[in-house]
């Protein structure tokens, strides 16, 4: 069977689900963050596939912006995690219950 848009979209959907599973199941902040990156990458793959098969380059420009914003987001998020670790000495979400009633 010839590889078409559907194949890429299925890979993207499965990768997104893996990232979602990581956010739900893992309790380490860093690994949860990596799973978020997986989900962003899955969205990028879907956008590039749509761009290619619809003969429209705008999707790839969108992916370019998403990669830039993701890089900024990672740097800020990791700085927050480091600041949190300095205060609480943990990178485990179950220990961070300050906002629990």
């Amino acid at each position: 069977m010839h590889v078409g848009l559907e194949h890429y979209l299925v890979v993207s959907a499965l990768l997104f689900s893996l990232g979602l599973l990581g956010v739900l199941a893992r309790r380490n902040v860093l690994v949860m963050y990596m799973s978020l990156e997986l989900m962003l990458n899955a969205a990028n793959l879907a956008l590039v596939a749509f761009s290619r098969f619809n003969n429209n380059l705008n999707g790839q420009v969108m992916v370019f912006f998403i990669i830039t914003v993701a890089a900024a987001e990672v740097s800020v998020g990791l700085a927050l995690i480091v600041a949190l670790y300095r205060k609480r000495q943990t990178a485990h979400v179950e220990d961070l219950t300050a906002m629990k009633l």
Binding site: H7, V11, L14, L15, L18, G19, L21, G22, A25, R26, V31, M34, S35, L38
Partner: peptide
């Protein structure tokens, strides 16, 4: 695709 999904799986579990 198989490599991407396999390595993605190994990131998570």
């Amino acid at each position: 695709a198989a490599l991407t999904l396999l390595c993605g799986f190994l990131v998570v579990v």
